[in-house]
């Protein structure tokens, strides 16, 4: 569980986070959503300490992250996996070495055992056989998946993903979402995902934080979202007419107003 209260962060004159508080729950996929530029990345980077918030408190399972020394943070971070918006793969290393790097650094396993673990996570992200490729030789979507593989290779307690499926086709996108949701449940991780992908929101939104103008505007899960009358949220999630229709249908379904054939009851 990651709990943060009243987080504030500004860059020069620009106030990006204006007192955000929320609880990211363990064993759930916690989503941060909001329009481009609403401060999702900044919030996530504050949570892991890549940015120092100007104000506010962050608590990791009872441990106050804000007050930790550099060394204490280092220890905690060995339990954190993070996927960056731009993947951030080490471009001097092959896919295999990228994923193996945390194992090399923090475990004393034999080489063969490490390779086995690398193959295991590569299989999870559907990238079997890409071991020897360099990041410059693979597509953006593949980089994302390698990034995820690297983030989960040490079975972290906390997983942060910044837009894990932007730039991916809808099918792969779904696959990645499902994978993240699956491992979250399997290893009882606290997972925080930044996204503005409406499919992710509806499919894996256990606990959603909607940000607007640096503030928490709405919170709930993917079921609540259909019934929300927050106009900003509605316009953001169900941006097209098609999605509006889909939402109304779901709403009717939930209210028992649709028969087995998918027709609206008279």
């Amino acid at each position: 569980m990651i709990e943060f209260t009243n987080l504030k962060k500004s860059f020069g004159e620009k106030l990006v986070l204006d007192g955000v508080s929320h609880v990211m729950e363990t064993g759930k996929t916690n989503l941060i959503i909001g329009t481009s530029g609403s401060g999702k990345t900044v919030l996530q980077k504050c949570l892991v300490g890549l940015f120092e918030p100007d104000e506010g408190e962050i608590i990791y399972d009872g441990k106050n992250f804000t007050e930790m020394t550099q060394d204490e943070r280092k220890l905690l971070r060995q339990q954190i996996g993070m996927l960056f918006q731009g993947s951030a793969l080490f471009d001097s290393m092959t896919v295999q070495d990228n994923i193996k790097f945390p194992l090399d650094m923090f475990t004393k396993d034999a080489h063969a055992a490490k390779i086995k673990r690398v193959d295991e996570v590569l299989e999870r992200v559907n990238l079997v056989g890409s071991n020897k490729k360099f990041p410059s030789e693979i597509s953006g979507g593949m980089k994302k998946r390698v990034g995820i593989a690297r983030a989960i290779v040490l079975n972290p307690k906390y997983l942060f993903c910044d837009e894990p499926n932007s730039g991916l086709d809808p099918q792969t996108s779904m696959l990645i979402d499902k994978l993240i949701a699956e491992i979250t449940k399997e290893y009882n991780m606290t997972t925080v995902i930044n996204t503005h992908d409406m499919n992710s929101v509806m499919e894996i939104g256990d606990n959603i934080l909607y940000m607007k103008n640096g503030k928490k505007e709405w919170t709930g899960n993917s079921k609540d979202i259909i019934f929300s009358d927050n106009q900003g949220l509605n316009e953001f999630i169900f941006a097209s007419e098609f999605l509006q229709d889909a939402k109304n249908m779901r709403k009717l379904e939930a209210q028992g107003k649709v028969d087995q054939n998918g027709d609206i009851k008279k």
């Binding site: 280092k74 971070r77 923090f106």
Partner: peptide
Amino acid sequence: SEQIDALEIMGI
């Protein structure tokens, strides 16, 4: 390209 951040996050 955030590779330094990625290393920091690993606790390095």
